[in-house]
């Protein structure tokens, strides 16, 4: 069980996967098993709105805000983690 707090300094792929799962509905089918780092978010079932929902949860839990401009350029979980962790490091 991950212990996400505002003092956390790094978002891991495990954290991101958990948050992505939480933001999906119970009646929705999401497969995030295996190595998802370089999969396209759309291939994982996350369009821009779903990614925004995930980002909102990260903003709440980690205090990191990603602008729409940054989000628009992000295609994969690896790129997403890099952007979030750069923000965390700069904070």
């Amino acid at each position: 069980m991950s212990d996400a707090r505002a003092t956390v300094t790094e978002l891991t792929v495990e954290d991101l996967t958990r948050i992505m799962r939480e933001s999906a509905g119970e009646d929705e089918s999401i497969d995030l098993d295996g190595d998802i780092l370089d999969s396209a978010f759309t291939d994982l079932g996350y369009d821009s709105l779903a990614l925004l929902e995930t980002t909102g949860r990260i903003a709440r839990d980690y205090g990191v805000e990603l602008s729409d401009d940054i989000l628009d350029g992000i295609e994969t979980p690896r790129e997403f983690l890099t952007a979030v962790n750069q923000s965390l490091a700069a904070a």
Binding site: A24, A40, T42, L44, G45, D47, S48
Partner: peptide, 9 residues
């Protein structure tokens, strides 16, 4: 790939 993402869910 907006429709693809919807379909994947």
């Amino acid at each position: 790939q907006g429709l693809t993402a919807l379909a994947k869910r």
